[in-house]
Design a protein around this nucleic acid. Structure first.
Length: 526
RNA sequence: GGGGCCGUAGCUCAGUGGUAGAGCAUCUGCCUUUUAAGCAGAGGGUCGUUGGUUCGAUCCCAACCGGCCUCACCA
């Protein structure tokens, strides 16, 4: 005979052994088995969700047709020979009323089609909050006015042996929901997201919205005829962004690989290959600090379209983001904290150097590296020897300008030094055709007219190599195969990257990336 | 990595230099339309870990492990 605890590690079984609440539940589990109840059967025929039952109930003409629902028991009130409980399914909660005489009448009957045995009332006494049950019965309204299912039969679908946090709610006279003892410990919520999702159901709504965001984007791009593709996560040379990578090792080849920091260089190889619009939605990995807007792995959309430039791409981004916002929230305006962000196009456009002048009064146009370094110091921005002109401008911008940009704003025309993959500006010397979309003080998107001149690209990479030699760990490394691809000829191309997590944060009004990622990175337990 | 705050029962939290308490949950009894169900009773904790100070530490000190906030770095 196998005992459930045998399948657990020593540590887990020790932990469980220590907890008498768990011991008690194991005892109940054994008791149920002894009485011939299978605590882990194979299925249950469900006819509807809790929310549908509540919506379709008619007091004038209550249906005599029984419904069949299944869910997790979230509250339980036993009253001698009758009990009330609330079960929670994926759409909400509904109250179940069980009367001894009624369910005993069912327990003599045949099993359900899925082989479930109907519980007797004293078997139901071995059921706990957290267990998953199936219920058949007619819908009615109780004396206290709550639409409920009057059970004619109950089956156990899964026995829970670990106690769930108990959260109670009450609606006060003003209709406000008061929550007692919320499950609020962030560490526990992230480490045991499954519990968070069971207990804090509004969390499920955030993730449902996130899924909706991704599918809306995908549909939008598919409808435009762009091809969704997949490119390597394991890369021998990383590139496409300024960041430090994770390193991993391939045993058979006995070489190190990098987890991609961006999809860019592979997607542009596909443009060289003749696809005229490709996109990828996937994970990137950057080996840097973690905070409320940075997770080591995060989701990116990258899109490349032939024969287009960054001006075209700005219009596409306006359309894409506004479309997504409307699909997910029902309108173009969204509340974020105490602010309201309006995605109605067109959005403000300002060049990077103008934005610095507007915010600081400093004109950095045409200045030397030494001069901008001096300006930066004057504004209490730390400068070190590894920083070139581009990095200093970037520091000025992200310190002094970016945090103040709440409404969606395109910052355009970046210094060539900080954009080694972007095409030189058609009319402005020393700049490239690039824009970032800033929203709520954070970068949401980054795009440019892609550099397709292989000679210029080679010299840009060489400049990056010089920065790297100066100590800039984030400078790009030379990718000879990418240069070879460009040498075959890449059409003029517009490229875009959008941070899916950050877009999700804005559209779901969450202030931490951890609240839009199911399993955010946390240090391992013990 | 720096600074601040935090870690006490399954959950949410009080608390004290003399080895701990509440509410909910759990268990026993009563209760066949309750709803933060109720009434009566009961059990449950090496107070994050390891050292130190002390006659004595959960409390004071240090280090460590985790977490949150913040700064730095970045997306």
């Amino acid at each position: 005979m196998s005992h459930p605890e045998e399948h657990l590690s020593d540590k887990e079984s020790f932990e469980l052994e220590q907890n008498d609440l768990v011991k008690r539940r194991f005892a109940e589990l054994e008791e149920l088995k002894k009485r011939g109840v299978n605590p882990y059967p194979y299925g249950f025929e469900v006819t509807g969700f809790s929310s549908e039952i509540l919506e379709s109930f008619n007091d004038e003409a209550p249906s005599s047709e029984p419904v069949s629902v299944a869910g997790r028991i979230m509250s339980l009130r036993r009253m001698g020979k009758a009990s009330f409980c609330h079960i929670q399914d994926s759409k909400g909660r509904i109250q179940i009323y069980l009367k001894k005489d009624d369910i005993e009448a069912a327990s003599g009957k045949e099993e359900t089609e899925a082989g479930n045995e109907w519980l007797k009332y004293d078997e139901f006494k071995l059921i706990d909050i957290g267990d998953i049950i199936g219920v058949v019965g007619k819908v009615f309204r109780t004396k206290m006015g709550e639409i409920s299912v009057h059970a004619s039969g109950v089956v156990l679908l899964s026995k829970s042996i670990r106690p769930l946090p108990i959260v109670k709610e009450r609606v006060d006279d003003h209709g406000n929901k008061i929550v007692f003892d919320p499950f609020s410990d962030k560490e526990l919520r992230y480490r045991q997201r499954y519990v968070d999702l069971v207990v804090n159901t509004e969390v499920r709504e955030v993730f449902a919205k996130r899924a909706n965001i991704v599918s809306s984007i995908r549909r939008f791009l598919d409808d435009k005829g762009y091809l969704e593709v997949e490119t390597p996560v394991l890369q021998p040379i990383y590139g496409g962004a300024a960041a430090r990578p994770f390193i991993t090792h391939h045993n058979a080849l006995d070489i190190d690989f990098y987890l991609r920091i961006s999809d860019e260089l592979y997607l542009k190889r596909l443009i060289v290959g003749g696809f005229e619009g490709v996109y990828e939605i996937g994970k990137d990995f950057r080996n840097e600090g973690m905070d409320r807007s940075h997770n080591p792995e995060f989701s990116m959309l990258e899109l490349y379209v032939s024969f287009k430039d960054y001006n075209w791409m700005m219009r596409l981004v306006e359309e894409l983001v506004n479309h997504t916002c409307i699909r997910v929230t029902g309108g173009s305006k969204v509340k974020v904290g105490d602010k309201e962000i309006d995605f109605t196009s067109p959005w403000k456009r300002v060049t990077m150097l103008d934005s610095i002048r507007e915010a600081t009064g400093e004109d950095v146009t045409g200045r030397s590296e030494q001069e901008v370094a001096q300006i930066a110091r004057r504004h209490q921005i730390e400068i070190d020897a590894s920083m070139g002109y581009g990095k200093i401008i970037d520091a000025l911008f992200s310190e002094l300008v970016e945090p103040g940009l709440i409404q969606p704003t395109f910052i355009t025309d970046y210094p060539v030094e900080m954009s080694p993959l972007a095409k030189r500006h058609r009319s402005k010397v020393g700049l490239v055709e690039r824009f970032e979309l800033i929203c709520n003080g954070h970068e949401l998107a980054n795009a440019f007219s892609e550099l397709n001149d292989p000679t210029d690209q080679r010299s840009r990479f060489e400049e990056q190599a010089r920065l790297r030699a100066r100590g800039d760990e984030e400078a790009m490394v030379i990718d000879d195969d990418y240069l070879r691809a460009l040498e075959y000829g890449m059409p003029p191309t517009a490229g875009l990257g959008i941070g899916i997590d950050r877009l999700s944060m804005i559209l779901t009004n969450q202030e931490s990336i951890r609240d839009v990622v199911f399993f955010p990175q946390v240090k391992p337990e013990k």
